[in-house]
Design a protein around this nucleic acid. Sequence first.
RNA 1: GCCUGCGUGGCGGAAUUGGUAGACGCGCUGGACUCAAAAUCCAGUGUUAGCGAUAACGUGUCGGUUCGAGUCCGACCGCAGGCACCA
Length: 937
Amino acid sequence: MYDFNKIEKKWRKYWEENNTFKTDLWDFSKPKFYALDMFPYPSGVGLHAGHAEGYTATDIISRMKRMQGYNVLHPMGYDSFGLPAEQYAVTTGNHPNGFTQKNIETFTNQLKCIGFDYDWSKTLQTSDPKFYKWTQWIFKQLYLDGYAKYIDMPVNWCEELGTVLSNDEVIDGKSERGGYPVVRRNMKQWVIDQAAFAEQLLAGLDEVDWPESTKEMQRNWIGKSVGAHVIFKVDGFDKQFTVFTTRPDTLFGATYCVMSPEHSLVNEITGSEQKEAVEAYQKECATKSDLERTELNKEKTGVFIGAYAINPVNNTKIPIYISDYVLATYGTGAIMAVPAHDDRDYEFAKKFNIPIIQVLEEVTGTPHENENKKSSIVAIVYDRENDKYLTINWGKNGGRLFVGGTRHDGESALDCALREIKEETGYVDLELICEDFKINHHYYAYNKDTYFNIEATPLLFELKSDKRENQQLDDDENFSVEWVSKECIEDEIVDELHKKSFEYVINPSAMVGDGIHIHSEFLDGMNKEEAINTMIDWLEDNHVGSKQVNYRMREWIFARQRYWGEPVPVVYLEDGKIHVLDDDELPLVLPELEDYKGHGGMAPLENATEWKKYSHNGVTGVRETSTMPGSAGSSWYYLRYIDPNNDLEFANQELLKHWMPVDLYIGGPEHAVGHLMYSRIWNHYLYDKGLSPVREPFKKLVHQGMILGANGIKMGKRYPEFAIDPLDIVRDYGADTLRLYEMFMGPLEASKPWSQQGVEGAQKFLDRIYRLYTSEKIQDKENKNLEKVYHQTVKKITEDFETLNFNTAISQMMIFINAVYKEDVFPREYAEGFIKLLNPVAPHISEEIWEILGHDNTMAYEAWPVYDDTKIVEDTKDIAVQVNGKVRATITISVDEDEESIKEKALDAENVKRHTDGKEIVKVIVIKGKIVNVVVK
RNA sequence: GCCUGCGUGGCGGAAUUGGUAGACGCGCUGGACUCAAAAUCCAGUGUUAGCGAUAACGUGUCGGUUCGAGUCCGACCGCAGGCACCA
């Protein structure tokens, strides 16, 4: 066994002493490559297996790129503001920085142990005043440009944590950290207007090479929806309100309006009789936490407020309700409700007995010219006692159907259905259960040779008794009446209209699909899209509405009642005005406190009575005491690595132009919307201001998967017994083994279980390599037997590294080493080439072997091996011969062999003959260089 | 409920994008070396039948397209992650 401990220590020392991985940022002579890891929060627990995986991946890429002649920037730093350090400060009374620095030191040593090629001269910490000076400076620019605002707004308040939380810090109504209940509360808050960037954030997603799932999550988070604002007047008041809807085409079907309980107009227009009930309901909603609201969301609740709105399109008076299913914070906080075509409105209308008006009909069948129009019904009768449905079986002349028929002039759908049931089946004792939405059906009647377009009403009845009268059948009506089960209906009723009718009545719900409009005057006959546009034009022409885009994404709450964060650099003057600090007052440094605990929901900085008082150049006031959220520093740290010690600006513009964007960014999928959205917002802002050279900061993004315990269970706090400490692996097997194993486990993005035997296998492979390189086999000779596999190996590994398929690249290394073991001579040229391919994955042992091969310099800058494609293509190839798709033989062909000759060889193969003997050869398919398939009968 | 992935040997996982399914590793079996063991090296290893050539079956289930399907299409089942009254 090679002495990995000694070798690894030796080379880490060498790299450090020789500044091997120090990047000269001003060297623009080579192409640049910026590889970035998501920097860690320096927790006391230290590095875990998942960190090691992602960091190894970027390390491999940066080492390969360096050898390919790139100037590589691969930095590491710390997201060092955060809760654990603050809790430590609260309990011990010590400043959190000491705790933080101790953790950072541990973390750095651990990272160094794994042999990453970080340039430690460019490290940073978000809690370092030299860094957060510029976080504050960027915040100041956001404020001066109107994107950072101090406004009164509903926030997520967590009583246990004593702070507000952003939406992505709240999960299922509980705090992400600790799982404490969160309630909504109005508070004056610093926010960043991220919705202002929504459109360009959406557009930017099309430019970047990111996982599709992450892009989709960001799109959903932004939540763009296009629709219209519609203005409703309040009947009897000189008041109006606006609703947002994505379905202005259904305005003729609006039968009521709903306001959120918090809507400002509610109290002004509530009728005196309803006042008490309305106030009770408002109170009930206000005290509910978000958690309760989502949990209790099964059943719709609400109250009629005694006022009416006027539908602008037809001047109909419709009632106004309040309900918590309408959110105060989305859209305008009020909606028009169209129960026929919206699930939530349907549910509410059913519960409160509000009329449901259908304005859109689903279309079935295929339209045709010269159709006859008529109205008809489909009557479905249910016998509850026997759980059967009434059908009529036309046999060969139309199959199984429900009772159907044409409506006479002036006859209602109900009367028509009762008449038809009686005529066709004789049943008369029926109870109407529901009359569902009409369906617009096109069909061809063979017996009449006519095309029809009918408006069919599905109805559901329940059979009350077997009472029957005589059927009244026409001469051509020849069928049997049959009671059948639901399953039978699903199998046997194939007519589109009848199938759809059954679906409708069995599960009554809103009709949310597309179709053609009815009862909508100037929209009649239009489909959804056409009607939406027409209605928007109408609203704009009549000044009662307009086209409107809405986003789910709201203000980003940008302040926390915490100590261990960047102080917000503003002062409140005596007259209430906001004064932002001058540049030369930055950084605004956190003061030392006696007591780091916030009392009674107040920010801990409230304890800093002296620090709070502001007096500078004759301006006096009180400082803001909340601090920025954890995501502030991480929103721009990737820019600072490019120029980490600059005191004059956050980074030199020339350097930024050269180094941005980040070429490869690797980190966990848990940051898909939080950090990765906030970073894009800050960078988009800086780009607009001309301070960042690119709009999208991260060109290519990859999420490493989770490393699970050996039993497939998540490691971590809940199952510490399965946790793998990567430092234990380094101690017992070596850093190279850890790196190699984690890269060989499986695809980078996948979650994969840990295997101790797999680790041993990785170590065995490195030892096998070491033994080979210390054997007599390496000679200054040629060995033609290895030529092809060597060039294949160079090609495969180069390509697989580029696409981050490390597991298959390593598999190719094993194939190569296995091949060399079978040979007596390992040509020095191949030996040196291979060790360069291994270097990015296992740098310590590679450097050692490089030295054994007689070199006295680091191999970090050695040229990456090149392959010769002509050495890979073979003259001959074994291809499979199939008979009827089953492989029966393999034949050897030369690369340029013609089709006829291949065909001949294939048919001549012994086992092929056996399977074609006595059979007719229908055809022979020859796919050049791949396969032959003989089709026989 | 909706969105996005994913289902392949005993296990981790390959498969040139429609062309010999199971590369490579782990494990297991046998052999060599050894007094012996470990380590190492060599060989074998999808399942079933057969001494064997070989045959049948085989990529979650059912169906389809195709000369040919792990790969494409449709329906379903299961797992993971995300979102969830967003009008």
